[in-house]
């Protein structure tokens, strides 16, 4: 029963969403707010203003007080003009949305929104809003631009798109709220959430909790440290240095140099493809941290043996965008 309701609600939301007019992004990647895409409604302040004006109007009419009427009409006119100013404040605003740097699932993806006031007039009180995140409103001087970053929780791997970015303004008197939706293709890449631990690549270890990399740990030669990067295995962190309050460093071992590892989808036995991808991600990060040459084999995709940050990112991108339909094929 509730399911049916939820379905109806979802469907009506969908059809309502289809009815919304959105600001299209032009060929140059910039969305310019058009007249027909702006919505406008009074705010709570606006309703309060209207109520007080009604009382003033009734009183002045009743007492045939022309000056009371004059001032009531003046404030009402200011309200009407303000409504047009709110609309006008959004009209023609150029918006460019870009995805931010890749993040891991569960983190916050950022989007960079450039607001540009083309032409001769400044834009006041422009606020971006997407779900819960609403960075403070900005002022864009005429002919200038402002960069606003917007954070969005990255729940799932893949490309996180920001479908409808709401841009709103309450300029000039907060009596009316004008807003529009910007449709944009901007996306931020979301890598899969790395598993906490992963078996040694090359070993078919069904038990992911088994202590990792038991073989030849002592044989690795410590070659130096570098600063902590996101995704580094906690096992390589130089805890002693951290305890001395020097900051987070990661020990680098050179012992594996020349070693080659294949990180392979088919060597893992976790049934859920997402868990498998998490394990693979951890393996890629570990391999990168250990500075070994590694390759990635996914059903239908092979990333050859290589080393370095670019390679790691390529592999992570493969994992992020991996299509599960292939996976089911290849397992059986």
């Amino acid at each position: 029963m509730t399911g049916a309701f939820a379905q109806i609600a979802a469907r009506s939301r969908q059809s309502f969403s289809n009815l919304l007019r959105r600001v299209p992004t032009g060929a140059d990647g910039v969305a310019r707010v058009g007249a027909r895409q702006i919505y406008i409604l009074p705010t709570r302040t606006g309703l309060m203003f209207g109520t007080v004006l009604m009382v003033m109007l009734l009183g002045s009419l009743n007492y045939q007080n022309n000056l009371g009427l004059l001032f009531t009409f003046f404030l009402a006119s200011v309200g009407l003009v303000a409504m047009h100013h709110a609309w006008f404040n959004l009209l023609g605003l150029a918006v460019q949305v870009r995805g931010g740097p890749p993040v891991f699932a569960g983190e916050t993806a950022t989007f960079e929104v450039t607001l540009r006031a083309e032409g001769q007039r400044p834009r006041h009180d422009i606020q971006l809003r997407k779900d819960a995140d609403a960075p403070p409103p900005v002022h864009v001087p005429d002919g200038d631009q402002r960069l606003v970053s917007l954070g969005l929780p990255a729940a799932r791997r893949g490309r996180l798109r920001i479908k409808d970015l709401m841009i709103e303004t309450r300029h000039p008197m907060q009596l009316f709220r004008a807003w529009c939706y910007v449709a944009t293709d901007a996306a931020t890449l979301v890598y899969p959430l790395p598993a906490r631990q992963a078996p040694e690549p090359g070993h078919d270890a069904g038990d992911a909790r088994r202590p990792h990399r038991t073989r030849g740990e002592g044989a690795e030669d410590y070659v130096g440290s570098r600063g902590y990067r996101h995704g580094d295995s906690p096992r390589h962190i130089d805890w002693k240095a951290y305890a001395r309050e020097r900051g987070l460093f990661v020990k680098q071992y050179g012992g594996d140099q020349g070693q080659e590892v294949w990180i392979d989808w088919s060597r893992l036995s976790a049934p859920d493809p997402e868990i498998r991808l998490g394990l693979l991600t951890r393996q890629v990060l570990d391999a990168d941290a250990a500075n070994v040459r590694f390759g990635l084999r996914l059903p239908g995709v092979v990333e050859g043996l290589a080393q370095g940050q670019a390679h790691t990112q390529r592999c992570l991108t493969r994992l992020a965008l991996f299509d599960d339909t292939h996976a089911t094929d290849s397992i059986h």
């Binding site: 302040t45 001032f71 003046f74 404030l75 200011v78 400044p122 006041h124 009180d125 422009i126 606020q127 409103p137 900005v138 002022h139 001087p141 303004t169 309450r170 300029h171 000039p172 008197m173 907060q174 009596l175």
Partner: peptide, 20 residues
């Protein structure tokens, strides 16, 4: 009082903010 009314309008404008 006309000046006062414009003052009230200015007050609302300032309270809304976002003016640079």
């Amino acid at each position: 009082l006309g000046v006062m009314a414009v003052g009230a309008v200015a007050m609302l404008v300032d309270l809304n903010g976002g003016l640079g």
